[in-house]
Amino acid sequence: MHIPDGLIAPQVYLAAYAAAAPAWAYAVRKVARDFDESLIPRLAVLTALAFVLTTVMIPLPGGTSGHVIGVGLLALAFGIWPAFLAYSLVLVLQSLLFGAGGITVLAVNALAMGLAAAAVTVGVHRLLVGWGKSVGVLVGVWCGVVVSAVLVALVLGVQPQMGTDATGQPLFFPFGPAVTLPVIVIPHLIIGAGEALLTWMVLSVTGRRRVPA
């Protein structure tokens, strides 16, 4: 779901950086306060965990597979802000190590796939946990994945409004929301279900045999 470099107009990604900067600053302060001196090792381990989680493949019917985003799991296990911070660092590493995503779109990807997905997952989980832990986890993670897909689709969908050249051809991503929303969101309805199931399985297993802190 990453947006790669080169598809997003500067006025959009610079605005995203302006929005992400205070969020990152708040996240660092919040995580530092909550984790005190264990901030550095915790953040490093969380980042590594999020990075490696993205390489865990979700089997899909038909013999294919997709990969885990992992933000929902991180958010439910450690909280919204550590998940956001760790995922932002993962995006930097993925960009530098694999050329996936990119530095200009880092803020857009971090806000959509890190902060929004984590906040929605935790929020829906809190709302529904009264109906049962499983319901909270399954619906929360699914909603987090779908909301982040909607945000990515909307950001891509506004790019045609960001300018055209003299011949009328778009300067950046060419398709509007009428195309991006169904193309990106519909597959994520299924991917979100896979991710929700996997997160529920992981939390069920780790919840049963919790590691002493």
Binding site: G70, T199, M201, T206
Partner: peptide, 24 residues
Amino acid sequence: RTRSAGRQAGALLEKAELQATEVN
């Protein structure tokens, strides 16, 4: 395969908690 993917992610999560404490 789904069960295996779940176990893999679970093992990573547990290892992460242990590693964070150990590194700290």
